[in-house]
Design a protein around this nucleic acid. Sequence first.
DNA 1: TTGTAAGCGTTATCAA
DNA 2: TTGATAACGCTTACAA
Lengths: 338, 338
Amino acid sequence: MNIGEIARRAGVARSTVSYALTGKRPVSEETRQRIQAVIEELNYRPNAAARALKEGRTRTIGLVIPPASQRLTDMQLGFVATVVDAAARADLDVLLSPSGGEHERSFERVVTGRRVDGVILMEIRLEDDRVTRLRQSGLPFVGIGRTSHPEDMTWVDVDYETLISQCVHHLADLGHRDIALVNRSAELVAAGYGPGHRAQAGFTRAVAQRDLHGVHACCADDAQAGLSCVERLLAEHPELTAIATINETAITGMYRALAQAGLAVPKDFSIAGVAARHLAENLDPPLTSADVPTIELGARAVELLIQRIADPGSPHRHLLAAPPISLRGTTGPARPRA
Amino acid sequence: MNIGEIARRAGVARSTVSYALTGKRPVSEETRQRIQAVIEELNYRPNAAARALKEGRTRTIGLVIPPASQRLTDMQLGFVATVVDAAARADLDVLLSPSGGEHERSFERVVTGRRVDGVILMEIRLEDDRVTRLRQSGLPFVGIGRTSHPEDMTWVDVDYETLISQCVHHLADLGHRDIALVNRSAELVAAGYGPGHRAQAGFTRAVAQRDLHGVHACCADDAQAGLSCVERLLAEHPELTAIATINETAITGMYRALAQAGLAVPKDFSIAGVAARHLAENLDPPLTSADVPTIELGARAVELLIQRIADPGSPHRHLLAAPPISLRGTTGPARPRA
DNA sequence: TTGTAAGCGTTATCAA
DNA sequence: TTGATAACGCTTACAA
């Protein structure tokens, strides 16, 4: 089924069908209706490849996600969902591309093969090859996250530095003097994962400002690791009374470690973090946390990308979200441990 | 950058470049290398739209997911991740399409617009329009899930009926006589959601076989709903000593309701379910459950789809997974409640 | 208001 | 072993 067949049956030229479809040229009401009837009868829809070839655009955006092997966090999942949703609202399709590891080819296809009009890139490192490659290619892109030179790219990001700093200040206000930061995995941080570094910077700064004693620990992204990480922290640093964290997936394990050590939250020990609201609310007790506005950030990323596609020369724009900390059930006055 | 430019610089015809690229015709080693050099120098990659137009296939598969608004469960997320992963391994791209609700157009574009070579459909209802439309369109598709007439389509699915039945038998073996099934949301079940109906069927069957007393309850897909659902169950049915469930997302709330009622798991109350392993293992206590093999099912779905694309006339194939129940920490001997 | 025809970048047929 | 050329299905200048 193609446009020629529709034209034949409606007794008009192919171009007339095209114009009736796109509205880029007036078509008399009568022929428009005749064409419409045929289109509906045959359930015709223009061939996307032909249209893309002719127009030079695909009406598709690429979403580059971390490889599936390492499970997506609640927050990452939130971004994927809202990006797909926002794109669909703008009649854009979304091509998913796992990057990293063995999926190099997938990324190359998407970027170089003109399969998409633009790209949204997740999980950006401070130094990131993919950003370099996208820049070279000239393909419009927007980061969810940013490199260490964030001026010359468009991005939305979570202000982990400020947020973790606020967590520490909040804990210090409650009298806590010995606080640990539970970061993401050591590999991720070593690989230059932005949120890990920025959280650490914010932690260090706040600890210095308040003249506290701070401990930094990396922790793999799963509950088991959270459990053993906190077990170790409690053993090695008996003076600790609070934790600040950006590691969503390890949190349930951290809760468990505290429970097993006989520490009640928030009576004996406090926790504050940065997490997806959905996750924070559903923990027991609910986590005091800065709730990352994934829906807004994802939607804004799509919006910024659409703008860049429309006008690739426009100046880069940035959105750094620092949502307020929502007080829930996990922070309370400091109480020295035995 | 196009194939003509490569041909010009390498001093050969466009077709020769094409053949050097696809290997569908022998090309002398010398010219092949000359072409290869130019390609690498310019980092050329064939235009996907032109290729799709000419070849009549897109090297892309569609993945139709439930709309983002209703959060994806751990299991659904697992499917998405493994499908993307398996597809990338076969050098296929994945086009994501949220279906249902307001995203009708996205589905239509993907199906009718020849944007993909085949489709993987998630969250299938017993009667499902999308299956009907895909059948009409002639586009190869594979379901993760199945309709009430599953013979004439290709699918992979979880055998909820058998699994819930096994859960009930396991609980009965431990002496439980009064068991509740916590199903997915009432809307989902009313809309003919397969797993909900099949779980109910398995539950009813096993309850009859063992001459037990069974209570069926629907529960929305979040922790809060799990909490209030179990609160209500405990109040209205003081005789209950165990729960079987397929509602992953409500489980933490169910745990909380039991704790608040002063019931220890598994000493006072047992729970068994069907869930993603990752989730089951990370609960506290870890959930006794049939672990849905998302990785295998997702990979098999892609495999089956690739086969159907290659040979659309081949007979339909099915894969019904009934993984064994993994005994973890949530089921124990029945102990009558006060 | 409508029709004609060129061309987007490939692949594949037919010649050489 | 290679080259010229006709499609694939669409959009859009240009003509009528």
